[in-house]
């Protein structure tokens, strides 16, 4: 493999990893606070992509505004999903909530089939983004460069939000102890809504960039990436945001480099995530950055 080719794969892997990271954050944030695996998260990602699709094709709104509005709307959708599917179940046994999550996932997929149609649609890529750059023999899609840049920018903002703002502190407090958090006067439901909003917003940003990079939309398009990003979150240590990002990048880069170096294994591409998951959980059951949930009392 030439260096140029390798660089190309590296860029592709990084951008796929970025997308995984963006989606994985939603899983890990929700789990961190509610100990709930939001199985509908992959479908939220799908909804975000379709919202952008319709926004571009069927409204006069310029594409760059659509790329902001669609994630905002998807954020609201995630927030509503929590209110309808999860909040009424709070305090119920975990299995009940899990089933509600799976139900929500099916509901969104079937909504998609009914309303968007089951046939694949081509994502309308804005012309300016639809170019390939060639730098000293390495040619890559412009979007593959943009994806990591936007991802990193969003991660920096998210990190600031969680570390420095009062709402971010409240999120971290909630992840530890609901009851004491409420004694601080924290609006628990409000914070949970914000967490769902952020997770869904990021998934939609990921979805739009996914649509530009792999421009085929289907109502079930969220299933496999959703599963992989859940795995990424677990690999990184579920509940830990840095871990989810790390897991996303490991998975994305690993997947691309695997098929680059061992093209025979291309068919096993999706299996890579599961194998990696098994190996990591065997070695470190808490995931790479996860801590044991015991604490000093």
């Amino acid at each position: 493999m030439s260096l140029a080719e390798f660089m190309q794969h590296l860029v592709n892997g990084t951008s796929l990893g970025s997308l995984y990271a963006l989606i994985a954050i939603g899983y890990t944030m929700v789990y961190g606070i509610l100990r709930l695996i939001n199985f509908a998260h992959g479908d939220i990602f799908m909804m975000g992509t379709y919202l952008a699709y319709y926004g571009i094709l069927f409204t006069p709104i310029p594409w760059y505004l659509v790329f902001i509005l669609a994630p905002l709307l998807t954020g609201l959708l995630g927030l509503v999903l929590e209110k309808l599917a999860y909040k009424p179940m709070r305090g119920s046994p975990r299995i009940t909530i899990l089933i509600s999550a799976i139900g929500a996932s099916f509901l969104l997929q079937n909504f998609g089939i009914l309303v968007f149609g089951g046939r694949p649609k081509a994502f309308p890529i804005p012309g300016i983004l639809d170019t390939t750059l060639t730098v000293s023999g390495v040619s890559v899609d412009l979007i593959s460069i943009i994806i990591p840049i936007i991802t990193i920018a969003l991660l920096v903002i998210l990190n600031f939000f969680i570390k420095k703002t009062k709402t971010g502190m409240a999120m971290r407090a909630l992840a530890k102890d609901f009851e004491t958090a409420s004694l601080m006067g924290i609006n628990i439901n409000g914070i949970i809504s914000i967490v769902f909003f952020i997770g869904s917003f990021l998934a939609a940003v990921g979805g739009i960039m996914w649509g530009i990079k792999y421009p085929q939309l289907m109502p079930t398009m969220g299933v496999v990436p959703g599963l992989k990003c859940f795995i990424a979150a677990v690999i990184g240590g579920i509940g830990n945001i840095t871990g989810a990002v790390l897991g996303g990048f490991i998975l994305g880069l690993g997947e691309i480099l695997l098929i680059a170096f061992l093209p025979n294994l291309t068919g096993y591409r999706d299996a890579f995530a599961f194998v990696l998951l098994i190996v990591i959980l065997l070695v470190r059951p808490t995931g790479l950055l996860g801590e044991k949930t015991s604490e000093k009392v």
Partner: peptide, 20 residues
């Protein structure tokens, strides 16, 4: 039983005390 937020700094705990 204290119930401080063990994953937050001392100062952050105080800031949250003043959340309202």
């Amino acid at each position: 039983g204290r119930k401080v937020f063990s994953n937050l700094s001392v100062e952050e705990n105080l800031i949250l005390g003043a959340y309202t």
